[in-house]
């Protein structure tokens, strides 16, 4: 069965083009999130190609693990880092484009030459032959993973766990005292000196309800309590006309 039928040809040309498009988009996008999305497109196209080549398990795992978990973690980190922080385009490593090109070419040579020379003499069993051994594609993969490639499989998982442990150790922060519970926090809030209720909104008794305009106390004096701390620190509090308060007093007395 070396012939390619029409359906297979259509799937290949659509998905191959999409995969290459995704890869090009990945390196040309300016926004990190867009790059991640292009990467997801490439991975899904590859998964479809795997499935079209009668490797449904590999295709599904590709989507679940790479698109679903790895890319999702990537997106998570990018979103935590910042909504609009497009990366700086100044290259800190000298000649990294040239180096990347060189290493990429080297990788292609190694893959083609290494795989080509090692697989050249092998007789091809064919898809049916490979799947017939254990009664199905999934069973055959399971058989290989848990017999011939068991050590590789376990070593890979040990590597991943080590990486995860390393990340946890790096991100770990020692607590000097036990973390306060929700109940303790609420008790502390009511025992403290600060007023436990809402702070006055901007604009109370004042001329404007902009956030930088302090609310006025009933006696007409401005209060800083309604101004967000960030604005206060930057000194961006709007000046208050003391007549604002007097106007209210006058209105009251009428």
């Amino acid at each position: 069965m070396n012939s390619v039928n029409t359906g297979e040809a259509i799937v290949f040309w659509v998905c191959a083009v999409l995969a290459v498009l995704g890869a090009v988009g990945l390196i040309t996008s300016r926004k990190a999130v867009h790059s991640a999305l292009w990467m997801a497109l490439t991975m899904i196209s590859l998964a479809v190609l795997y499935i079209a080549n009668n490797a449904p398990f590999l295709g599904m795992v590709q989507v679940i693990v790479y698109t679903g978990a790895v890319m999702m973690l990537f997106l998570f980190v990018l979103m935590v880092v910042g909504v609009d922080s497009s990366d700086s385009l100044i290259e800190t490593i000298k000649g990294q484009r040239f180096l990347a090109l060189l290493l990429g070419l080297l990788l292609i040579v190694i893959l083609v030459w290494g795989l080509g020379s090692s697989l050249a003499g092998l007789p091809a069993v064919g898809l049916d032959g490979a799947n017939r051994v254990d009664g199905g594609n999934v069973q055959s993969i399971a058989h290989l993973i848990f017999t011939d490639y068991l050590v590789v499989f376990e070593v890979t998982s040990a590597l991943l766990i080590t990486a995860a442990m390393g990340a946890m150790v790096l991100a770990h922060r020692e607590h000097w005292q036990p973390k306060p519970t929700q109940a303790q926090l609420s008790v502390a809030r009511f025992k403290g000196d600060e007023h436990p209720g809402n702070r006055p909104n901007p604009g109370i008794y004042a001329r404007h309800n902009a956030v930088d305009t302090p609310a006025l106390l009933p006696d007409g004096t401005p209060t800083d309590a309604s101004i967000p701390g960030a604005l206060r620190a930057r000194g961006e509090v709007a000046p208050v006309d003391i007549n604002d308060g007097r106007a209210i007093e006058e209105a009251d007395s009428l």
């Binding site: 998964a47 398990f57 599904m60 795992v61 989507v63 679940i64 698109t67 679903g68 978990a69």
Partner: peptide, 8 residues
């Protein structure tokens, strides 16, 4: 697994 993949 297909349902899981599509959900993700």
């Amino acid at each position: 697994l297909y349902v899981l993949a599509i959900a993700s």
